[in-house]
Design a protein around this nucleic acid. Sequence first.
DNA 1: ATTGAGACCTGTCGGC
DNA 2: TGCCGACAGGTCTCAA
Length: 275
Amino acid sequence: MPELPEVEAVRRSLAPFLTRARIADVDVRRPDLRAPFPTAFRARLVGRTVRALDRRAKYLLATLSSGDTLIVHLGMSGSFRIDPAAGGAKAVSAADRHDHVVFSLASGAAITFNDPRRFGLMLLLTPAQLARHPVLSRLGVEPLSSEFDAAALARACRGRKTSLKVALLDQRIVAGLGNIYASEALHAARLSPFRRASTIATASGAPREAARRLTAAIKQVLTKAIDRVSGNYRSSRFRVYDREGDPCPRRNCSGVIRRRTQAGRSTFYCPACQR
DNA sequence: ATTGAGACCTGTCGGC
DNA sequence: TGCCGACAGGTCTCAA
């Protein structure tokens, strides 16, 4: 499920339950996610209050009253389930074999982390560690922030010989884009996924027209996706992703969506209107 | 320094 | 029905 829009939707759904909540208990059922669990994980969480729940790229960051930050990455298949558990009558949902961590809150609510593929990650960092931890310090600009503009994208792509699509998946270039929205944004910007990334910038790194279109497309695609995923809106999935063989959804384009592999991942694009 | 390939792990789907 | 390969929304590590 998780690229930036999905992670943001998860953040929004969890925030009302977690913000200012006290953690009453933590049950780690499977500690073997992508990285080993922090030592004393439970001891450092129980009794703490969650001050804020934020997001950076595809990471969720829960700031605790102790000053530590709990970092969660959903990997490919991670999700959270909320059991509001109105006091007493335990209407707790059935346990699943991929329920790996259960956070019990003082309110009686339970927040369960489920992740079949176990590519997810949990870290517990002190403020000093947070400031320099590689998973965060290597991330590029947040695409929905005002810092992200055509100049920033062009600078990041300058001199890059990889394809534009592969560059968009690089979290150092745009933090939070994944395989679906990279394809979607390139289609919206009418840019070929196979172009060299460097072609959106001049030799000195200044933005070309393509960089402006791509920046706007990324912001628009992500913003719409957050609305859709958050359930504010129901629209029908994606314009090109997983639509091989369908007609191009662009008005006045008679192309057909194709699929090709780049860096081991599927890219969906319209050969007629993406240049 | 970049870049691509492979690895991690489980589930699902289509074809035979 | 059962088996098998291909594939899946992510990221890390390693070798060229």
